[in-house]
Amino acid sequence: MSLLSRKTIVIGGGALLLFFLPLVAKLTGQPYLLSLGSRILIYALAAVSLDLLLGYSGMISLGHAAFVGIGAYVVGISQFHSYEATPFLSAPFLLSGSENGLFVLPLAILVAAFAALIIGALCLRTTGMHFIMITLAFAQMLYYFFISLEKYGGDDGLSLYARNSFPGIDLSDDRHFYYLCLTALGLFLLFTCRLVTSRFGLIIRGAGNNDRRLKGLGIRSTSYKLVTFVIAGGGAGLAGALLANQTEYVSPGLMHWTLSGELMVMVLLGGLGTLFGPVLGAAAFLLLEEGLAMYTEHWMVYMGPVLILAVVFAKRGLFGLLAGGNSRDD
């Protein structure tokens, strides 16, 4: 019981901190905290979605950034066409550009999820090391694909003219944008927490733990894994769409495999299979990056060994340290 309450305290404290961060930023006169906060929330969203794959269903995807990139490009391309007043598609149906967030954000989720459906269906023909390499290869394929898309800036990417419009709120106001990100992360966490304790979640946790045994029970896990892959892809797509809005810029670099690797690092640092851990991991990673970058431009030369040590010695991650005991699930 005391463990449970400790976990609740950590989560509740974190939520309060995130909720009042804009106030802190205003009082301390550090508006820069807001944009850092938004970045943390967005990366956290992507990391939570990756945790569904790594921590629960045992799918080690090294290509998760592809879906972040797709989500971002949906925002970028959609706005490009809206600005140019040219349709994106004229056949088989008319699809014109838009900069309305209520339309573009769901579209980003759907497109990323659809891409995850196709890539996942191919990747799930394999397991183990093959799966890792193939997810990486597909992400790289998309990376090169977007580099070759001269129309949308190719290697240089696309600059947004402004953030998406949203009825009732003004996303160009950093505070409004921050709360949009916080809401998105909160809703996604709520959804994933329900998901992993549902019957569906039980199956994917079983698949992540011992896939052969699951087959012995008469359950073929492939379709469950594929749906998980699609959900995770959709979550990453949402993160990408928010990221595009935050930086007002999209580029193939978002799909680069180093971003996939960094998302993985966030999940591990925070705590594998904990959902809330990756939020902590994203915060720790980005703060560490900012902090180290202040002292040396070569911060990665320290981050690398830190990561290796974390892998070898601290498997439970930060969330495990803070929340203690059996923080995995509830």
């Binding site: 790594l54 993985m264 990665m300 690398g304």
Partner: peptide, 16 residues
């Protein structure tokens, strides 16, 4: 997964 992460750390280290 551990191998992927540790060797990813190695890449960061060597590149930098």
């Amino acid at each position: 997964l551990d191998q992927v992460l540790a060797t990813f750390g190695l890449i960061m280290f060597f590149n930098e």
